[in-house]
Write a protein that binds this DNA or RNA. Sequence first.
DNA 1: CGGCGGGTTGATCACTGTCAAGACCGGTGG
DNA 2: CCACCGGTCTTGACAGTGATCAACCCGCCG
Lengths: 237, 237
Amino acid sequence: MLEKKIITDCTSCALAKRCLPSGIPVTDLYRFINIAHTNQTFASGDQLFKQGVKASHLYVVKTGSFKTQIINDFGDAHVNGFYLPGDILGLESMAGGITLNSCIAIEDSLACKITYRPLAALRKEFPNLSDLAVKIYSQALATTLETQNCLSIHSAAARLAQFLILFHRRTNQVTYRQIRLHLNMSRQDIASHLGIAVETVSRSFSKLIDAGCITKSGRIINIINTEALEEISRSTA
Amino acid sequence: MLEKKIITDCTSCALAKRCLPSGIPVTDLYRFINIAHTNQTFASGDQLFKQGVKASHLYVVKTGSFKTQIINDFGDAHVNGFYLPGDILGLESMAGGITLNSCIAIEDSLACKITYRPLAALRKEFPNLSDLAVKIYSQALATTLETQNCLSIHSAAARLAQFLILFHRRTNQVTYRQIRLHLNMSRQDIASHLGIAVETVSRSFSKLIDAGCITKSGRIINIINTEALEEISRSTA
DNA sequence: CGGCGGGTTGATCACTGTCAAGACCGGTGG
DNA sequence: CCACCGGTCTTGACAGTGATCAACCCGCCG
């Protein structure tokens, strides 16, 4: 109970310095906390928000991971992106006021929900928060640009290799000189995200293993040869 | 000469209400004009900025069109996006301070160059400009999301169809019930942008013509059956 | 034990990349 | 006015890659 109370507070959150509170003077932080619904719990498969409804909140991932997906007119889904602790969800829907995609928890997760309107008021009041907003948006654009480049790669193995590299950059989990990735999403999600078939994802993993780039066990990937992986990610064929 | 002077001024620019001046009170507009270098001319092929250098400016497209492209480590280029009048260039590079891509004029064009640092100062001073910045960024994110979805489409013809639909939404040139698109970029650029071969672009155009969706003459495309085009853009195969 | 979903592997076929050749278009020069 | 030339675009032939369908393995759960 006490512990729960502690993690609820932005002042003791490990992510605070990468998160919105970093744009607000400590003495005024209470005003941000007032408009934030911190540590909302989501079970794997739960939906944060649904595509095509009124957009009014941002979400900051605290623990776990999420995916966003768009359902097109014909009914099939495309996974747009994956979101890890520190990432902010819902940025792209603010201009139009309607959510452009759905967001689903990949595993049991925590996220902080922030109502947009009062946040905009704070942004006008605290210049640093305005700067931070621009920086966050700019960063988000840069990330989608990377994803876009990844999708434009022709070969499936190269695309997967690039995906692993990009995912690694965002997690930075290093143990024993090996680089260990926990891919919390299903192969199906990876396939949808990369625009290739599930079977091709499996086969591409096998290729990367045969090439000595990685080893894997289920959703745990070990990158054992970064250079070789980068080499494959650049290969045209 | 007189005419030149007129178009130089933001107060008489047709795009001003979609552009940054719309976030600034008319009485203070002179302060924005002071930091903007309006109507810079670029010949087809000229470079606005180069990948990997210090990023310090935004550019607003006034007339003509531009493309951005990334050169990867192996040396081949990928066209990230196309920019039309009213679009803003350089948003994604502000967070890192380094340009992530190069920008090149596709045809003879005009663009307004705005230094970032004083713009940030104005943003803090004028709340509406802060809101506008967020809206612009959010819109930009939404656009790249659309591009991403387009790239995840499997079939080349469907990808091209989706590209035409998205491009049309941004131009809205309607004449005589027909929808007329002027694709100012080369087939090579389209191919690079969509992640397919030039020849496949040509073949896909032919397929769209055979299907009765479009007619074309060089870089002029007429959409004669929007429903059919959308149908093809959704087809999995 | 059997069912079930997720993941891998195998076989086949359509699609697209590649290479090659030809068509078209605009510009230049005779 | 016409011939030539370069680049862009299109079309054809072929080979390679990945989508599809199918079977199988595995861990989980009733």
